[in-house]
């Protein structure tokens, strides 16, 4: 499959038209000019769009694709209405599928599988919650084991656990070489 077909498949939730908007890119560079990340790093949205359009799969290994904060400034300003941020998220899905997922990102994903929260509660916050007159444990997956099980079932059904490299025996990340 071509790169754009892969992106279409991963980005199917947005619809094919959203991903295919990338063909309208005329390389004007307004995205790069608007990008707060590009101001302080080597990340260039225009270059990303160019590589995607030409089917250059080396973009999947480029760590710079992870420097977009999804601020949507380029998306809002694009004169050709390219759905840049959606294309970038779907492109990153393809990269993740090919094993390009940092350890730090895998750890964040692991917390959701383990606790239902990307940022789980800690003892200091429990104390503070009590002081503020709130329930010590919030009424989320932290309080309801059956809700946590529902999240874990979704992770299994979507093979998110495999994508992240989550080991259900150790309830931790599998060792995996960082690509």
């Amino acid at each position: 499959m071509s790169l754009v077909e892969d992106i279409e498949e991963c980005g199917w939730v947005f619809g094919k038209d959203t991903v295919d908007s990338l063909y309208a890119c005329m390389q004007c560079g307004k995205c790069t000019g608007s990008c707060p990340s590009g101001r302080i790093t080597g990340y260039r949205t225009r270059r990303l769009m160019n590589k995607v359009q030409s089917g250059d799969r080396s973009i999947l290994e480029d760590p710079d694709i992870w420097l977009c904060t999804t601020c949507y400034t380029c998306y809002e300003r694009c004169p050709r209405e390219v759905k840049t941020t959606d294309v970038i998220r779907a492109l990153r899905n393809v990269a993740a599928k090919e094993g390009h997922m940092s350890k730090a990102h895998r750890a964040t994903a692991m917390y959701v599988i383990k606790t239902g929260h990307a940022v789980p509660i800690n003892d200091a916050t429990k104390k503070l919650r009590k002081k503020l007159g709130l329930s010590e444990i919030p009424p989320t997956t932290h309080k309801y084991p059956e809700a946590l099980k529902a999240i874990q079932d979704i992770s299994k059904k979507m093979k998110f656990d495999k994508l992240v490299g989550f080991d259900w025996n150790t309830m931790n990340l599998e060792d995996r070489e960082e690509k």
Binding site: W66, C68, F160, L163
Partner: peptide, 10 residues
Amino acid sequence: GVFGSFDLNT
């Protein structure tokens, strides 16, 4: 922007 970047289905 995080989980949407990993797996849009999940």
